[in-house]
């Protein structure tokens, strides 16, 4: 029954991707990439990947759009026209043809007898109820069977924010002729003059944070978890910064606090693993936390690591935003970024 819906969504996706390729207005292209992510999120939902859809919507349509718009405000708004060349197109068509040939021997879409559905996955589904008692199988596998991957994932986002801070974290010592010092306070002042936006945001931001906390702690039962919650809470704080100005925000959540927070988040995740080592188990073996009731121990472990992910991601999102906004040369980052929320 969902067949036609999928076809239509895929057609939309193709159209959006082509538009991104053809548009010369980079602002419009950035919005189209956001729409691309949103459409993919719809498709992920149809394919039963609700957690992936949730994350893609929050990340692709939210955070990365804000990042693109902030970058564009600092760089250029239009792409220059260039003569068309054949080589990249030929290369891409050739690669695509190879990939299509490779798909011919694949199990068909949705085939329940495909190897991936019979080999490892059934154990995950059976184990979720037997060993964990956690309804959301994705959260469960993420934090337990593949908890080490998720630790790596937390470190990836940590690495990215360290890298962004290394690259953008300091003011330029001698601004070139084309650059001015940051004008963030004035830029924000204009947004602050929008009485309606101000009032609405004051009502909405606490709700968003509350929703983030719900996502964080409800991740065992429904779609969600530390990463999604971190993105949502981070987005709420960024929204506050967009409206009330970077300097106001930095008074509320100073940068050193966030740096400590992100480090503590990673350490909380890794430390949970070390704690399980010290209590005689393998790394990230949460069952040892409660020798009488392994299920309870695993719950505790998953709660702790999800908490670590949530803290680290929240702080990482805000820190990355600080680094870009701190370099803001024009107020577009704030106007357009606010519109993109």
């Amino acid at each position: 029954m969902d067949f036609p819906v999928e076809v239509i969504l895929f057609l939309f996706l193709l159209a959006t991707a082509l538009t991104v390729a053809l548009l010369e207005d980079l602002f419009a292209a950035a919005m189209m990439t956001g729409i691309f992510s949103l459409l993919s999120a719809c498709l992920f939902t149809l394919m039963d990947a609700v957690d992936v859809a949730f994350t893609e919507a929050a990340v692709g349509a939210g955070v990365s759009t804000v990042l693109f718009l902030s970058t564009l405000a600092l760089t250029a708004q239009r792409e220059k026209q260039h003569p068309f060349t054949w080589f990249p197109l030929l290369l891409v068509i050739l690669t695509g043809a190879c990939l299509v040939t490779g798909t011919l021997d694949m199990p068909h879409y949705g085939d329940p007898k495909a190897p991936i559905h019979v080999h490892v996955a059934p154990e995950y589904i059976a184990g979720a109820e037997r060993d964990f008692g956690i309804p959301n199988i994705v959260t469960n596998v993420l934090a337990s069977y593949r908890g080490y991957d998720t630790f790596g994932e937390t470190v990836v986002i940590f690495t990215a924010s360290v890298g962004v801070m290394l690259l953008l974290g300091h003011r330029r010592r001698r601004p070139g002729p084309a650059h001015r010092p940051t004008i963030t306070p004035e830029g924000a002042a204009r947004m602050r003059d929008f009485a309606i936006v101000r009032v609405v945001s004051m009502g909405v931001i606490p709700l968003i944070v509350l929703f983030g906390l719900y996502v964080q702690f409800h991740g065992d039962f429904g779609p969600g978890g530390g990463f999604q919650a971190g993105v949502i809470i981070g987005a709420a704080v960024i929204l506050y910064g967009l409206i009330f100005g970077l300097s106001t925000l930095q008074r509320v959540v100073p940068s050193p606090l966030l740096e400590t927070g992100i480090a503590l988040g990673v350490l909380l995740y890794g430390g949970t693993g070390v704690a399980s080592l010290l209590m005689g188990g393998h790394y990230l073996d949460y069952a040892v936390f409660d020798s009488d009731d392994p299920k309870h121990g695993r719950h505790l472990g998953i709660l702790l690591v999800e908490g670590g992910v949530g803290i680290a991601v929240t702080c990482a999102m805000i820190l990355i935003f600080y680094s870009f906004a701190g370099r803001a040369l024009a107020r577009e980052a704030f106007d357009e970024g606010g519109g993109g929320q």
Partner: peptide, 9 residues
């Protein structure tokens, strides 16, 4: 891996 965040502090 865990030394990295400690080092940052």
């Amino acid at each position: 891996l865990m030394a990295a965040p400690l080092c940052m502090l």
